[in-house]
Design a protein around this nucleic acid. Structure first.
Lengths: 204, 204
DNA sequence: CCTCTCGTTGACCGCTCGGTCAAGACTCCG
DNA sequence: CGGAGTCTTGACCGAGCGGTCAACGAGAGG
């Protein structure tokens, strides 16, 4: 039989070969989705690009939509992990935010495809809630830092959630614009973003 | 004959009734594109929603793509006009930027559908260049103001283009997040955006 | 050798898409 | 009235979509 007995999504047992195939699909789909768009990229495009039959796709994923959701979730988780790694062992809240911003800019430069997919997902009702949750998580990481900085008088009082979204907008937009211009140094963009944000919240 | 002799796009002579129909199509399409997405909204959805035959659509527009491009262009032109009206007769560059930011936030609140379409267009290669041009025009408006402010020592030196995109990111992202939460006051969001941006560039 | 599961094939399905077009209705002018 | 635009109809087209499935390898364990 071709179709798996249970849902394909949870707890599929994959051989090393299967795991590899799955990754191939995710990687190629990410590229195609980013360069051509989610809707214009068909499942046939993906499997043809891999030189395999169509059934392979549906052996590893329930649907095109489910694949995209997995890519999205993975991407947002990866960015957040990167941020948390970057701020580890940094007690000062302002320093933590600066490192977080820099980590976000660098992540977007290293994963421009994924960054673009997140941008798209935000505009499609089917996926927007995932992005909202991911963004909210990032802001939720920043809120206690902002509150701490306010209590200690490092920055003037304000609505920490709004400030968080403002900072997110700065790094997102700066990256989006400069990531596709050749010869742009991620460090330079990270400098600008961090400077602007820290001044924006009233530190510096 | 049904198809027009020349290209339908340039210089179609429309009766008042025709002009009205055209607007109906644009307005309904804008709503549907914003709520369901560009690709998932079919031409059939639009004409059915209007209760007319399919040929009507192609009497007024060359293609679905051309319609979307027109909506986009119109939207970006409208925002820019709103900004220019808001800053008229304001000599001080910092004041001008503040008014421009506030105008942008208000425009997005009043035209949430259009704002959403611009967001999407940015992620589709077919339309991205239009958005890039529109964004670049907004930034180009801000650059001389930033330069003037730097020359006069109102703000510290920096790359004005990058600062422009950072400001754009703040208003875009703040608006995007709060425009869909009920009971949000556009003035309050405009306050936050203007504050953050002016501090971000080093005024205040 | 057989067997069991994982992995793969590609023809096929129903459906919807963007777009076309011959035919006809409406409207205004002479 | 007649005729010339403007506008509308809706059946139709070829193409492509996401998704299914019976059948078939491939390789590991017995």
């Amino acid at each position: 039989m071709a179709t798996p007995k249970d849902d394909p999504s949870p707890a599929r047992r994959l051989t090393p070969r299967g795991t590899q195939r799955r990754r191939q699909i995710i990687d190629l789909a990410t590229m195609r989705f980013a360069s051509d768009g989610y809707h214009p990229t068909s499942v046939a495009d993906i499997v043809d690009g891999l030189g395999v039959g169509k059934g392979v796709f549906y052996w590893y994923f329930e649907s095109k939509e489910a694949l995209f959701e997995e890519i999205l979730r993975e991407a947002q988780k990866d960015l957040r992990r990167g941020q948390q790694r970057a701020v580890a062992n940094t007690p000062d809240p302002i320093d933590r935010m600066e490192r977080g911003i820099r980590a976000a800019v660098h992540w977007s430069f290293e994963h421009r495809d994924l960054a673009k997919l997140v941008e798209f997902a935000q505009t499609d009702e089917r996926f927007a809630h995932l992005v909202r949750n991911g963004r909210a998580a990032l802001v939720a990481d920043a809120v206690p830092l902002l509150e701490e900085a306010m209590v200690h008088g490092l920055i003037p009082p304000g609505n920490p959630e709004q400030l968080g979204y403002a900072m997110l907008g700065v790094s997102t937009n700066l990256t989006l614009v400069y990531v596709h211009q050749p010869g742009q140094d991620p460090d330079a963009i990270a400098d600008v973003a961090a400077d602007f944000c820290l001044r924006g919240i009233g530190a510096r």
